[in-house]
């Protein structure tokens, strides 16, 4: 047979020359006593090692645990970033809890009707309800319409504060009369009480008139600035009012001091603040004195007025 002519990978045919050569590979038998030797070795063979404690299934759990920890860490970081407003700095919208809940339940959010973008776009105005806005204020106040809208919002807030203040005054008068009656002290007659309330109302009206006059002057100045093309910011509108609003508080602080301490405190104040305090003092002094309980004789009249009404100067 010619090997080169045949498929060399073909099976070896029994009886072929190659098969006859391979069949001559003789094999000796097992030695005697082989089984006895194996049995003896099995007797002294140590016990096999126990299974490894860590099974294959723990490998998958390690991977799952890693994934779970990664997801939890990412969620914590994302929550922290959303809570601190970091995402908004990068213009990544973060829906509010109401919107998320509305998307889940399918109900419109309670505040969906409110024009939230208008509120967000008008940071330079007073904090009035945006639903009442007739003119949308975008950016600084630089047009007469926007300034009028800002004044309208401020007036709404002032009206609410005046109403609250009147209610507080009425409540305090009623409480004082009730306490005197409970203590067995003489109480004013209805006529005296009506006259007392009338004087309080008149004093309050005068103070409001003074405030309105100052406010009108300031608004005229702001309108002039806007007419000249100057833009007003929230700080430019509100901050001067806040400076003036600090004067009554300082007057109250001075009232709690002894006369010597009060004089020393006024002496140490900067000239600008001392002038503001004196103007406030004179403005309160021009108004009618509201009957108040025991006030030191040398205290400024403005303190008496503040103690009698228990109110702040409207901004």
């Amino acid at each position: 047979m010619s090997v080169s002519e045949q498929d060399q990978g073909a099976p070896v045919i029994p009886g072929s020359p190659l098969a006859r050569v391979l069949d001559d590979y003789a094999v000796p038998g097992l030695s005697a006593g082989f089984a006895d030797r194996v049995l003896a070795a099995a007797e002294v063979r140590p016990a096999p090692l126990p299974e490894l404690r860590q099974q294959r299934r723990w490998r998958g759990w390690r991977l799952g645990r890693g994934i779970a920890l990664g997801i939890a860490s990412f969620g914590a970081l994302a929550t922290a970033a959303a809570a601190t407003g970091l995402l908004q700095q990068f213009d990544i919208p973060v829906p509010s809890a109401e919107k998320v809940w509305a998307s889940i339940t399918g109900k419109p959010p309670a505040r969906a009707a409110a024009p939230a973008p208008v509120i967000a776009a008008a940071p330079d105005t007073a904090s009035e309800p945006a639903s009442l806005a007739q003119v949308e204020i975008v950016g600084p106040v630089d047009t007469p319409e926007e300034l009028s809208e800002a004044f309208r919002r401020i007036d709404e807030v002032r009206a609410g504060r005046y109403a609250t203040r009147r209610e507080n005054i009425t409540q305090r008068i009623d409480n004082a009369i009730a306490q005197r009656r409970a203590a067995g002290l003489p109480v004013p007659t209805p006529e005296e009480e009506a006259a007392f309330r009338q004087r309080v109302e008149e004093a309050q009206a005068r103070r409001q008139q003074l405030a309105d006059e100052r406010l009108a002057a300031r608004r005229a100045e702001m309108e002039r600035k806007v007419a000249n093309g100057e833009a007003l910011t929230r700080k430019g509108i509100v901050q001067p009012l806040r400076d003036d609003a600090r004067a009554p508080e300082r007057l109250r602080q001075l009232r709690r001091m002894s006369p010597e301490q009060r004089r020393e405190a006024l002496r140490q104040l900067p000239p600008e603040e001392r002038r503001v305090l004196m103007e406030e003092y004179r403005a309160r002094r021009q108004g009618p004195a509201v009957p108040t309980p025991a006030v030191p004789a040398d205290s400024p009249p403005a303190e008496q007025e503040g103690a009698g009404t228990g109110t702040r100067d409207p901004r």
Partner: peptide
């Protein structure tokens, strides 16, 4: 394996 066996035999 068969091919190698035949080559060795040859």
């Amino acid at each position: 394996a068969r091919a190698a066996l035949r080559q060795a035999w040859t």
